[in-house]
Amino acid sequence: MLRLDINLLFTIINLLIWYLLIKKFLFKPVNNIIAKREEAIEGRYREAEQAKLEAGQQKEKYEALKNGIQDEKDQVMKKAQEDARAAYQQIVEEANRKAGQIIDDSKKTAELEHTKMVSRAEKEIRSLLFSAASEGMQKEENNSELYDKFLTKAGESEHAES
């Protein structure tokens, strides 16, 4: 038992081989699998993080889109209001213009009518005067009588006119 011999060398060789075998066939596969698992977990964490980030970006995008829609809506509403106002203005102006025209027309017509009436009255008075004069000349009545007769005739013609 207390002797050192060639078996010491054998034992050293044995130990070296043992070390290599254990390292290659026991430690390496086990450590490999643990490292792989850690990597997989790490990868999953990264994926989750990435997904979260993407979701956030998507949300922001939708938010922006939503805001854009709101803006557009506001713009369209504003434009429609403006258009409506303009159309309203135009219609009112048109109506005013037409009304003005109608009034003018009717004024003109009335004036024309008036002129016509006046000219007819003049004509009538002229004919009355003429007939009165001719009558006077025929009957030779006094002036006051003649005047009264004229007035009566004029009143009659005025009645017949209206």
Binding site: F10, T11, I17, I22, F25
Partner: peptide
């Protein structure tokens, strides 16, 4: 060369563990 029992037992251990 006489190979001692301890070396043989070590071989057995190595084989079994391997």
């Amino acid at each position: 060369i006489g190979i001692s029992e301890s070396v043989v037992v070590t071989w057995i251990i190595m084989a079994v563990v391997l």
